[in-house]
Simulated assay, not measured.
Amino acid sequence: MDLLALADFNLVARHGGFGRAARASGRPKATLSRRVGELEASLDLRLIERGGRALKLTEEGRALFERAGALLTELDETVAAISSGGDKPRGRLRISAPLLFSQTAMGKLAAAFALRYPEVRLDVTTDDRTVDMVEEGYDLVIRVNPDPDESLVGRIFLRDRLVVVASPGLTRPADHAVVPAVVRGSDQNAVWEVKAPAARSRIAFDPILRLSSLIMVRDAVRAGVGAACLPLSLVSHDLAAGRLAHWGDLDAPAIALWTLYPSRRLLSARVSAFLEHLKEAFPTGTPAELAAYLEA
């Protein structure tokens, strides 16, 4: 197989069209089209559907793109490492991270990483949705309790848990009483099942305020508007200082933050360096450790 033709196909697929690939690479559109045509002829397969305004990969084209992209990246990185005399992190590193983690911790993490590895160009985007790493060109994603994905590998680097908190001035309701609450987004629940040292209980609530960010929810609860269910790491210092009261832990699965990346035999030096950076920042991965990092 012609590796140059394969690289041209990967370039076109990644940019979503011959014109975009030509503008991004500075190479003639006709040359890219010819090279992809030669690759299709050599494989006796159609990889790209022609005729539409937007590029569309065939099923075989998508499969080749997903596998070839990882292999070509490994090949480029291996050549770069050999030519430079070592496996030094360099180049662009694209990361997708969830909103709350990005707002609270990612700025400091990214800055420290950039200072440590000046030859890496770090690009972090915030997104709570499930991104397609191959399709959207991410090297690493951080997700909360992700669904299993056979195409990805990863590990947990932080754990947290949800707690119900309120301003000390708000009295915890008796059984069957309803408490005013601040919730995130369109949460339709009306009852919190909580675990306290003595027993389990149910707290019915009326969402009088809906906000799009958990940081906004915390600030509203501090102001005494109502109770809320929040990650412990986000409110542990408020609890210790007496600004908030702890009504109990939510009876729900723990929060686990995962780092995920495409399954590759050879992991890039950039991704390996960032994974080690996270491990050094959160060696035990506890809520208290995350809370201390946010306050440092």
Score class of each variant (00 low, 15 high):
S233D: 00
E295M: 12
S42V: 06
A190L: 15
L39M: 03
K279P: 00
L32I: 02
L267D: 00
D160I: 10
R35M: 06
R94T: 00
E66Y: 14
R34A: 11
F101M: 14
A220C: 07
A269W: 01
M133V: 06
A198G: 01
V124Q: 05
A114R: 14
E49W: 14
L55N: 08
D87Q: 05
T31W: 14
A252T: 02
E74T: 11
P262G: 04
R159N: 11
H277G: 06
F205T: 04
P207V: 01
V221K: 09
L278G: 09
L158D: 04
Q103Y: 08
A24C: 01
I142V: 15
L257D: 03
V144Q: 10
E38M: 12
K88Y: 11
R92L: 02
L4D: 09
S33D: 03
V144T: 08
L55H: 13
M216N: 08
L152R: 06
H277I: 06
T73R: 13
R143W: 04
A105Q: 14
A269S: 11
R35Q: 09
A110D: 01
L152H: 03
L234P: 02
F282P: 00
D44F: 13
E135D: 06
A41F: 01
A196N: 02
L278V: 05
P180N: 11
L140S: 04
V191Y: 00
L55G: 03
T58P: 00
G185P: 12
I95G: 01
T126I: 06
A245Y: 11
A63C: 02
G85S: 13
H246D: 12
L250F: 05
D87V: 11
L170E: 01
D238R: 14
R129L: 00
L100E: 07
H15Y: 15
N189M: 06
I156V: 15
A273T: 04
S84C: 11
R270W: 02
G61W: 13
T58C: 12
D147R: 13
W247H: 03
D139I: 02
S263M: 10
E276Q: 13
A181C: 14
V120M: 10
R172A: 10
H246P: 13
F18S: 03
D206F: 07
A228I: 02
